[in-house]
Amino acid sequence: MPRSSAPLALTAVCAVAISLAACAPQDEAPTVNPATPAATAGAGCAKEKLPTRTAGKLTVATDEPAYEPWFTDNKPANGEGFESAVAYAVATKLGYAPADVTWARVKFDTAVAPGPKNFDFDINQFSITEERKKAVDFSSPYHLVRQAVIAPKSGKIAGKKSLADLRGAKLGAQVGTTSYQAITQVIKPTAQPQVYNSNDDAKKALQNRQIDGLVVDLPTAFYITGAELTDTTIVGQLPQVGSPEAFGLLLDRNSPLTACVSGAVDQLRADGTLQQLEQKWLAQVAGATELT
Score class of each variant (00 low, 15 high):
Pro2Gly: 14
Pro7Asp: 15
Pro7Gln: 15
Ala9Tyr: 09
Leu10Val: 03
Ala15His: 15
Ser19Gln: 12
Pro25Tyr: 07
Pro37Arg: 03
Ala38Trp: 02
Ala41Phe: 03
Leu58Val: 01
Leu58Gln: 02
Thr59Cys: 08
Ala61Gly: 10
Asp63Gln: 13
Pro65Asn: 09
Glu68Val: 06
Thr72Gly: 05
Asp73Glu: 14
Asn74Leu: 06
Asn78Cys: 12
Gly79Asn: 07
Ala89Lys: 08
Thr92Lys: 14
Val101Leu: 11
Ala104Gln: 15
Ala104Arg: 13
Phe108Gln: 09
Ala111Ser: 11
Pro116Cys: 04
Lys117Gly: 01
Phe119Val: 02
Phe119Ile: 01
Glu130His: 05
Glu131Trp: 05
Lys133Pro: 00
Ala135Asp: 09
Asp137Ile: 04
Phe138Gly: 00
Val145Thr: 11
Gln147Cys: 03
Ala148Gly: 10
Gly155Trp: 06
Gly155Arg: 05
Ile157Tyr: 10
Ala158Arg: 09
Ala158Lys: 10
Asp165Arg: 13
Lys170Gly: 03
Leu171Cys: 03
Gly172Ala: 05
Gln174Pro: 02
Ser179Leu: 13
Tyr180Ala: 06
Gln181Cys: 02
Gln185Leu: 14
Val195Ile: 14
Asp201His: 13
Ala202Asn: 10
Ile211Val: 07
Leu218Phe: 09
Thr220Glu: 15
Ala227Leu: 11
Thr230Ser: 13
Thr230Cys: 07
Asp231Asn: 12
Thr232Ser: 12
Ile234Ser: 08
Gly236Val: 05
Gly236Gln: 11
Ser243Trp: 02
Ala246Glu: 08
Phe247Arg: 04
Cys260Ser: 00
Asp266Ala: 10
Leu268Gly: 00
Asp271Phe: 07
Asp271Cys: 07
Leu274Thr: 00
Glu278His: 11
Ala283Arg: 15
Gln284Phe: 01
